[in-house]
Write a protein that binds this DNA or RNA. Structure first.
Length: 645
RNA sequence: GCCGGCAUAGCUCAGUUGGAAGAGCACCUGAUUUGUAAUCAGGGGGUCGCGGGUUCGACUCCUGCUGCCGGCACCA
């Protein structure tokens, strides 16, 4: 009587008298599969191919076609790299080497860190180890023996990891040839299965266990694919992202610059500023439609106010300070809310005033760690499209839903269709009663539900003063950017003693919400530049049209065309230089001007323009007035009624 | 902040073992009046990031600082 029955993915069942390995099972199904087999999935869990299956199970043979197999070869590739490193650089300790998106890394402890120059040598040795086709085998060791072994060979970090594993966990050690590593597995059956489609990408420092108080290790990043063409495609993908880099495009398009005297702050040139102004105009219109008022509060406020708000205590090390000759100490605001609360507190608020929605395009300064600065994406001086909503607890739910809908709707206008929401709830250290946290968290969750959005839960990641939602959008090449945020604040209304008079004639504490949609205008501009690869849609483009002449005979007409475009509200420039049209086309194309209006003798005589759109090879000849009207219509801000309409 | 790398003309980058700072583009001048991604010729332009040191001599070697780049940590 067969003892073990194996159910395959197609529903068929194979029966065996004794335990069977994944290898044997694959061979039993077919020689092609035996050759392609990389691992097995037993009851949903990935396992090594050579381990016996002891009891009835649902089993699938994993081959290169399975998504999971990429993780396997990347993990093995990390091990091959670790082996190569230890062969080449004796005395280097291994720590951890996980699979990450598109690749893997391994962290090493070594007095002398690796540099990029070492990568080629390590890569070469890795290819040799793959060619050795070493069998990879799993062993289970007794805990004490494992710790003793790793200590003996000088692997203090590995010994520490084993010591910290839960008591009931098996200590599995994988060997490939002479080389051993502690690892949960599973792995391929031999180093040969890794193949040669891998590449080491960069070296970096990384703290042991991700804690900046610990020793810094040296990390090597790599990527690994089944086939060379996949590797090449990945390398091209990285190159494509580099081409979109907003710092590079920002220079090419003459949008902004940075310089040493203002680390983390930006000099906007007029074209870049035009983009920012357009974002502000858009958000103002949306705010106005959504029932917001707008205020503006001082950028420099007495330090005492920041003591009251709690910022000095909590973020004192991360703020800009300034003092005046009269000896007063000020803080350059890192947030708009304390200033906003001063406006709220001026005069007495009634429950009839709520919900009160107050927007502020506030420029804030934060003394970010120098290593965190990154173009427009992480600045020390940036502008928030901030707003604070003061409401009653009863209104909290509706306000959360309305804000969430507004955010999602606005992202669509910028071509971001895929948005996920991150929900962060109460951290261990917090202020406020648990019942209030219960209600606040429930309100945010309900808002997610009401919009039917995808969301992820980050337990304990909320701010100390309240839970929050963070809105993450996916750009044209699949990268995620966290932009918008909606936070409940249980702290500041208390600290500044904000109140409203209720129907009962008593003073009550309002609930305060913080919300930003773009987050930072500068950062959002950077994201847009990368999302569109500089090809901003007409309504956002800094220079929307350029009128370029073919000969100087058309100069007078070109001025007339340009004048009409400007009168129609378009950001237009004219190019009457004594240059060939090829030269002009090339130059304005590189500057990412969306619409080039070429005029020569023909156009001047017929009152037409030849429109060449960015990226197109063909032109379109249109009567001047028709062309202006069409461009004007296209340049209209989405989501808002036309001005004066 | 931490680890590593980088810093030469407005931009992109060359610059050998330490021995007189270069190219292309851009800019200026002139010629050319041109039909959809670079017309030709000439010219001007440098504290080689900043400061110290070694040396007869430093863009080059050593060192401190600043900024930037790639990560890590941080991100109210």
């Amino acid at each position: 009587m067969p003892k073990i029955s194996i159910t395959l993915p197609d529903g068929s069942v194979k029966k065996y008298d004794q335990p069977v390995t994944g290898e044997a099972l694959a061979a039993d199904i077919g020689p092609g599969l035996a050759k392609a087999a990389l691992a097995v999935r037993i009851n949903g869990e990935l396992k090594d191919l050579y381990l016996p299956i002891e009891s009835d199970a649902e089993v699938a043979i994993i081959t290169a076609k399975d998504e999971a197999s990429l993780e396997l070869i990347r993990h093995d590739c990390a091990h091959v790299m670790a082996q190569a490193v230890q062969e080449l650089f004796p005395g280097t300790q291994v720590t951890i080497g996980p699979v990450i998106e598109d690749g893997f890394f391994y962290d090493f402890a070594r007095p002398e860190p690796f540099t990029e120059d070492n990568l080629a040598v390590i890569e070469k040795r890795m290819h040799e180890i793959v060619d050795r086709d070493l069998a990879i085998r799993r062993q289970v060791w007794e805990r004490k023996k494992a710790i003793k072994h790793f200590k003996k060979i000088g692997e203090a970090y590995k010994a520490e990891i084993i010591g910290d594993l839960p008591g009931d966990e098996e200590i599995s050690i994988y060997s490939q040839g002479e080389w051993l590593d502690l690892c949960l597995g599973p792995h391929l059956t031999s180093t040969g299965k890794v193949g040669h489609a891998f590449k080491l990408l960069k070296v970096a420092g990384a703290y042991w266990r991700g804690d900046s108080r610990n020793q810094m290790l040296t990390r090597i990043y790599g990527t690994c694919w089944h086939q060379e063409k996949d590797l090449q495609a990945y390398i091209e993908r990285i190159a494509e992202a580099a081409k979109r880099d907003h710092r590079k495009l920002g220079q090419q398009m003459d949008l902004f610059h940075f310089q040493e005297e203002a680390p983390g702050a930006i000099f906007w040139h007029h074209k870049g500023w035009a983009l920012i102004l357009q974002l502000v105009e858009y958000m103002r219109a949306r705010n106005q439609k959504a029932g917001y008022e707008e205020i503006s509060t001082p950028e420099i406020l007495d330090r005492a106010l920041w003591v009251t708000s709690g910022h000095v205590e909590k973020f004192g090390e991360d703020m800009f300070y300034t003092s005046t000759p009269d000896g007063r100490e000020y803080v350059i605001k890192p947030m708009n809310c304390p200033g906003g609360l001063q406006v709220y507190n001026k005069g007495i608020k009634s429950y009839r005033d709520l919900p009160l929605r107050v927007a502020e395009f506030g420029k804030v300064h934060r003394f970010e760690p120098s290593g965190a600065l990154h173009g427009l994406m992480r600045l020390r001086a940036f502008t928030q499209d901030d707003a604070h909503i003061y409401c009653t607890e009863a209104q909290l739910q509706d306000e959360c839903i309305t804000v969430t809908r507004l955010i999602l709707d606005i992202y669509k206008d910028f071509g971001f269709e895929e948005v996920t929401i991150k929900f962060s709830d109460r951290p261990p250290q917090r202020i406020g009663a648990d019942e209030v946290w219960d209600r606040s968290e429930a309100a945010l969750l309900k808002a997610i539900e009401a919009t039917g959005s995808d969301f992820s839960h980050s337990p304990g990641e909320g701010a100390f003063y309240g839970p929050k939602l963070e809105f993450v959008l996916r750009d044209a090449i699949g990268r995620d950017w966290q932009c918008g945020t909606l936070q409940v604040d249980l702290n500041l209304p208390e600290r500044f003693d904000a109140t409203f008079v209720g129907p009962d004639g008593e003073r009550h504490r309002p609930v305060m919400l913080h919300r930003a949609l773009f987050g930072s205008l500068e950062r959002f501009a950077g994201i847009l530049i990368e999302h569109y690869a500089g090809h901003l849609p007409l309504w956002l483009a800094p220079v929307q049209t350029v009128v370029a002449t073919i000969t100087s005979d058309a100069d007078v007409y070109a001025r007339q065309v340009h004048g009409k475009l400007v009168a129609a509200g378009l950001r237009s420039e004219s190019d009457l230089r004594n240059e060939k049209i090829n030269y002009k086309v090339r130059e304005h194309s590189l500057a990412k001007v969306p619409a080039l209006l070429v005029v020569g003798r023909n156009e001047a005589e017929n009152s037409t323009v030849s429109i060449r759109r960015l990226g197109a090879k063909e032109q379109q000849i249109l009567p001047l007035d028709e062309a202006v009207a069409a461009l004007q219509a296209e340049a209209r801000m989405p989501g808002c009624p036309a001005k004066g309409a």
